[in-house]
Amino acid sequence: MEYTVLSVCPLTDGNFQVSLHGLLSDRQRAVSTFTHPPSNEKTPIILNGNLHWMVCDKAYKEANGVKADCSNSIVLCNMNSVNFSTIPHPGDQCGLRKKHNQMELMEMEGRLCFCDASLNRNIVIWILEDYEHRIWVKRHVIMVDPLIKFCGIHHSYGSHVNIGGFYIFNNELLLRVSKSYESHVILYNLQLNTSRRVGQERWNVVAVPHTNSLVYLDADVN
């Protein structure tokens, strides 16, 4: 009956100190050091006794001078032993310009799912069919241009449109499409290829699961 916070702090040698902090007690202990910090922008996906995150490119680059390699882009933490490990993301490797911040993990059909929004032209969704042997299968490809036009966003060359915040809800993909200070939260039907808007704000918004529903939060909190 204890809630535990896992914290990751950089060390001077390029590694990261992982610690556990009890919220209902004064228990605090250092667990281990690890080379690849998990992203703190989203909660981990819990499957097969492991926590799953995308690596935090920013923190890794600040500690090592370069972004993390694609072969270490997904960070795992065993919930029993609190041991960390990494696996590569599916699909093509990023090359010199890493874009792991445009990749997200979610759960679909009780399996780990990888959403790649780094390609600008489309969103590719992979599902981990064989967890033990790390066999990924490409499940969906969603064209980006119709999503942008649906949200009424004018997309010109050189402008940046951010797509992320992926969840599966009632067999629909929930995602966020934003540019500058305008954000749209939409549900995309993966079978019918249709979209419907469920939220729109002038600031960044974040959707989170809430019992059997969803809520979205204004992230521009001062």
Rank of each mutant, 00 (worst) to 15 (best):
I142A: 05
N170A: 09
F169Q: 02
I153C: 08
V141G: 01
H160Q: 14
S156H: 14
H140M: 01
M106Y: 03
I123H: 05
S183F: 04
E109Q: 15
V124H: 00
G110N: 09
M106S: 11
N122Y: 10
R121N: 10
G165H: 07
S159A: 10
R197A: 06
G165W: 00
L119W: 01
L112N: 06
E172L: 02
C115M: 05
N101E: 14
G158A: 06
N193G: 01
V144N: 06
Y167T: 06
F169L: 05
R176W: 01
N204T: 12
R134T: 11
S183G: 11
D116W: 04
I163P: 05
H133P: 05
N171V: 01
C151V: 07
T194A: 08
V144D: 01
I163H: 00
G152Y: 04
K179C: 10
W203R: 15
L147M: 10
V198A: 06
R111F: 00
M106D: 05
L128Q: 07
N162M: 11
E172Y: 04
R134V: 12
E109C: 10
Y157K: 12
E132F: 09
E132G: 06
L175Q: 00
R197C: 13
Y157W: 09
R139Q: 14
L119V: 07
S159Q: 14
K138T: 09
I186N: 03
G199D: 05
D116I: 07
G199M: 04
N204W: 05
W203I: 13
S195F: 04
M108V: 04
F114I: 07
L175K: 04
H160T: 14
N162C: 12
N120L: 11
I135P: 03
S180Y: 13
E201R: 10
D116G: 06
V177Q: 06
S118M: 04
R121F: 08
R197M: 13
N101Y: 11
S156W: 08
I123A: 00
M143F: 10
I135V: 13
L173D: 03
I135G: 02
W203Q: 14
V177M: 02
W136D: 01
M143W: 09
G158V: 08
V161W: 01
V177P: 02
C151W: 06
I186C: 07
V185A: 12
R176Q: 09
M103N: 12
S183V: 02
N204I: 04
N120S: 14
V137A: 12
E109R: 12
R196T: 09
P146N: 07
E109P: 02
M108F: 11
Q200S: 14
H133G: 00
D145I: 10
I163Q: 01
G199I: 02
L190W: 07
N101D: 12
N171E: 15
E172I: 00
S118G: 13
G158E: 07
V177D: 02
L147T: 07
I127P: 01
N171C: 09
Y167D: 06
N193V: 07
R111Q: 15
F150H: 13
I148T: 09
